[in-house]
Computed example of a mutant assay.
Amino acid sequence: MSKPILEVDNLQVSFKMSAGEVQAVRGVSFTLNKGEVLAIVGESGCGKSVTAQTIMRLVPTPPSYIKNGSVMFDGKHDITKLSESDMEKLRGQEMGMIFQDPMTSLNPTMTIGEQIMEGVRKHQGSSKEKARERAIELLNLVGMSNPVERLSQYPHELSGGMRQRVMIAISLACNPKLLIADEPTTALDVTIQAQIMDLLKDIQEKTGTSIILITHDLGVVAEMAQRVIVMYAGKVIEQGTLNEIFYDPRHPYTWGLLRSVPRLDSDSNSDLASIPGTPPDLFAPPKGCAFAARCPYAMKVCLEKDPEHFTASDTHSAACWLQHPDAPKVERPIEVGVRSNG
């Protein structure tokens, strides 16, 4: 079996603030295989975007700092130990990122063509003419109409969906081995969201690029991902294949996420389920399970000791004391699955 393209081991990232230390990422570990789409899901503030931006070394330092752990890329680069100049060689060439809001990510003073060509010329040493040809090729790849005309336009002249296509083109300019898509459809309407996700899926199938998809939209996950990581309060609390997470979830937080998704096959008059309460304060995380205060199944041990990951299969594990062999049996809520086209 080929070596994973990415191996994250016990990653811990904190922010030094005037009020104290915010423990944003608290011991995250996972792998990403070559050609795989891995989704990281969870509510706002769970640490998924900080994890992604740490992999790209884009989190400002200070106030952030990596307390512990390693991020091994392509079996030869520990991202946490590389200098900024070495990271600049990796970013764009071997690692690309699609950000949440293309309007704030694109440079308003540069044309679309200049922004796409910049990475090609820097990393591949291409001439201006060759870079221009590559830019046109990329705009065609992402389904942009009139690509030659678009080269001379500025971001404010394009719609939100078109700007996001330009962001994808920039991230793919040098055929990266890893692509991180951080909430790539957040600022778009539903119709354009579907088009962008179809585009990403098509590009992944054509190029074989490994993708980390950061999202809170489980419908998007069902369309694209092969494996899913569920994060809560800076930790991975469950991970498994798409079918394992959607149809055999083991953590009460995952149950809550899945039950909060509207379903076409449910009673239209029924209330949409929600998870009561709020996430814990990461200035002072609880010593036990971070979800215990919101969990209807919490036991005494949940408040006192952080659970280990209990294995359900070779690919599926959950950090929940309910999975302990001696734990009381709990009946999982019905209708936790989200239908997938996969």
Rank of each mutant, 00 (worst) to 15 (best):
E137T: 02
D314R: 03
G75T: 04
R134I: 04
C320E: 12
F30W: 08
E331D: 14
P60T: 08
D271P: 00
N33E: 06
L139G: 04
L138G: 02
V330L: 10
K89D: 13
A293W: 10
G113W: 01
S29K: 07
M144G: 00
K128Q: 14
V230L: 12
V8G: 06
L200D: 12
E94D: 05
V301N: 07
M167I: 03
P296T: 06
L151Q: 02
T61L: 13
V22K: 13
S317P: 03
I196F: 09
L58V: 05
S18C: 06
E94R: 10
F283M: 07
S210V: 00
A293I: 04
R91H: 07
S266I: 15
K287A: 09
G342R: 04
K67F: 06
A233F: 08
M72R: 11
V41L: 12
P280R: 00
Q93L: 13
C302A: 10
F99R: 01
L257Y: 04
S126I: 05
T241F: 13
E133P: 00
A181I: 05
V336A: 12
I40S: 03
E137R: 02
Y297V: 11
K305G: 10
P333D: 14
G234H: 11
V50C: 08
F283S: 11
T185E: 15
E114K: 02
N243C: 07
M224I: 01
S274C: 14
V120Q: 07
T278E: 12
R163T: 02
G69Y: 08
S105G: 01
A169C: 06
R165E: 07
T191D: 12
G69R: 06
E21T: 12
L172Y: 05
